[in-house]
């Protein structure tokens, strides 16, 4: 049985990693990359979180740009060594669009009629697109429902729950990471090694096999949702400098253990 797969993603090394892992196992009919929407995201956050929190997030973003990201680069290279993180351009049909929720993408999905759509790092997918394939499966960097939103492992460490640092493969619905859970995998936190930037890479690496298994199961029509009644649902956003200090403190405590 052949299974038609479409990937909707944002361009990033981790998305490339996922696409290449899927391409090694399945025939990918189309990859659609959504351009980053910094301004749109900023507007959304200003509306939902207010200017003070957003100002803090921007300050942290600057710190991340100037300090965390450059320092994490060699560690990320070490994590990704031996994995294929090359862009799929030229090897797979690739389309770059401004928005996943555009007529261009709807038309494409209508034409291809995929069995499974794999989602990685895009914005919220609208109901219209969601109606165009039986399975929309997302890789989410966090254990849902406790860590919906962004930087799940970071917040798990901040909350003193490193056991809940992990990755979730779930169905996509109209909410933010509220879809039915299909698989989850924990990651090991190394307090000597890990940074805010290495955690998502580890989460993607941990999510590759569960994603492949889930897509296989979805193609065979036997993917079954699991529930986590033990976890309360909460959505998280980008950290502020204060949150980052709490994260550093939590990592120091983990080192002492």
């Amino acid at each position: 049985m052949t299974c038609k797969i479409v990937v909707l993603a944002s361009r990033s090394e981790t998305s490339y990693l996922l696409i290449n892992a899927l391409a090694a196992r399945f025939d990918i009919a189309q990859v659609v990359f959504e351009a980053s929407h910094f301004r749109k995201m900023l507007r959304y956050r200003l509306r939902t979180l207010g200017p003070w929190v957003v100002a803090g997030q921007l300050l942290f973003l600057l710190w991340d740009r100037l300090v965390i990201r450059p320092r994490s680069r060699p560690r990320i290279s070490r994590l990704l060594a031996g994995h294929d993180t090359s862009a799929p351009d030229g090897r797979l049909p690739v389309l770059d669009v401004r928005s996943i929720n555009s007529p261009e993408v709807w038309k494409l999905l209508e034409q291809i009629r995929p069995d499974v759509v794999v989602v990685s790092g895009t914005g919220i997918i609208g109901r219209r697109a969601l109606g165009l394939a039986p399975w929309f499966i997302n890789i989410h960097c966090g254990i849902t429902p406790r860590y919906r939103g962004v930087h799940g492992a970071f917040w798990a460490i901040v909350e003193g729950r490193p056991d809940l640092a992990g990755v979730t493969i779930h169905q996509v619905d109209a909410g933010v990471d509220t879809g039915a859970i299909l698989a989850q995998a924990p990651i090991d936190i190394d307090p000597q090694f890990d940074t805010y930037r290495t955690l998502p890479v580890k989460q993607y690496l941990a999510g590759l096999d569960p994603m492949i298994e889930t897509v296989e199961a979805a193609c065979a029509g036997r993917a079954t949702p699991i529930t986590r009644p033990d976890l309360e649902s909460r959505q998280w956003f980008s950290p502020t400098p204060g949150d980052y200090l709490r994260f550093r403190r939590a990592m120091r405590q983990l080192r002492k253990r």
């Binding site: 090394e13 680069r73 990320i76 290279s77 990704l80 993180t85 090359s86 862009a87 351009d89 030229g90 090897r91 049909p93």
Partner: peptide
């Protein structure tokens, strides 16, 4: 993260 040769799509003008 990867060698520069990874950027070469090893393909053709229509696909890349």
């Amino acid at each position: 993260p990867a060698p520069d040769s990874y950027r070469d799509p090893r393909s053709d003008v229509t696909r890349a």
